[in-house]
Design a binder for these strands. Structure first.
Lengths: 135, 135
DNA sequence: TTCTATGCAAAGACTTTGCATGCTG
DNA sequence: CAGCATGCAAAGTCTTTGCATAGAA
């Protein structure tokens, strides 16, 4: 994804385009991945971009609120940001902490219960926990 | 659930039987529910039992490691302990934070993808997020 | 120029830990 | 009586916030 494409993405959501947001997006959206705030911060440092921790949190919060990324709750210790914002599911390796995407077509789900009264659907998350050394 | 039944439950798992554990279990296992550590602490206070926060955390950790309760990760801010340890799923109201059980029979799940290499299944969690005032 | 983003450090929420004391087995 | 559980406070993580400065529109 080029800088211009990312800039357009931000503009479409009325998010102001800043150097930090461009660089964070570049890093995060580079490929399908699951990153914690600290990993993003480390990645920024590694590529020579200086950003504060607060900006990483603020930016990722804005990105997730605007559908650019998704958050994944599996680890009680920290939040993960998922660069794939389209609906999909996950394998979660409880031993290694590794998260692996499952394409939505690979999961067939049939819920035979109505939604709670006066609520509307907001999304479905399937997490398949696995144990082992992983690949 | 009587005190004796709970005591037997603890003994079977080789957990030593203490007054605090009996009372926490009595409170938590009273009915199907989802409680945070703070809610458990408040519940203990309300019933006139004095326990420290550390003991609540230690006890619930022991209980979850021994299959007496389950933990639910949906709220990035805190962990919930689910008094229903048998497999089941959840509705999660993102507006109110409310968690509602879904019996396992009500969910039919077919995953057409193999597990990651060298891993074995450890459980499946389906979380259906809903929005609204709730019932 | 006006409003929002950034950076830093401080504050906050939740959870864990260290250690002395008490209770279980 | 040996060993684990408890309580308290302190320490630790992750995340948010306050405020002054810098940058976007």
């Amino acid at each position: 994804m080029t800088r211009d494409e990312i800039a357009g993405l931000l503009e479409r959501r009325r998010l102001s385009v800043t150097a930090q947001r461009l660089e964070i997006a570049e890093l995060v959206l580079e490929k399908p991945q699951h990153l914690s705030a600290d990993q993003i911060l480390a990645g920024m440092r590694a590529r020579g971009s200086r950003v504060s921790k607060a900006t990483v949190y603020n930016t990722m919060k804005a990105f997730s609120e605007h559908g650019i990324v998704r958050t994944v709750e599996v680890d009680p210790q920290r939040q993960y940001y998922d660069s794939t914002s389209a609906p999909h599911h996950h394998f979660y390796n409880v031993d290694t902490g590794e998260l692996i995407d499952i394409p939505p077509e690979a999961v067939e789900l049939d819920v035979k219960t109505g939604l709670p009264a006066r609520t509307e659907p907001a999304g479905v998350d399937v997490v398949i926990r696995v144990r082992g050394v992983g690949s």
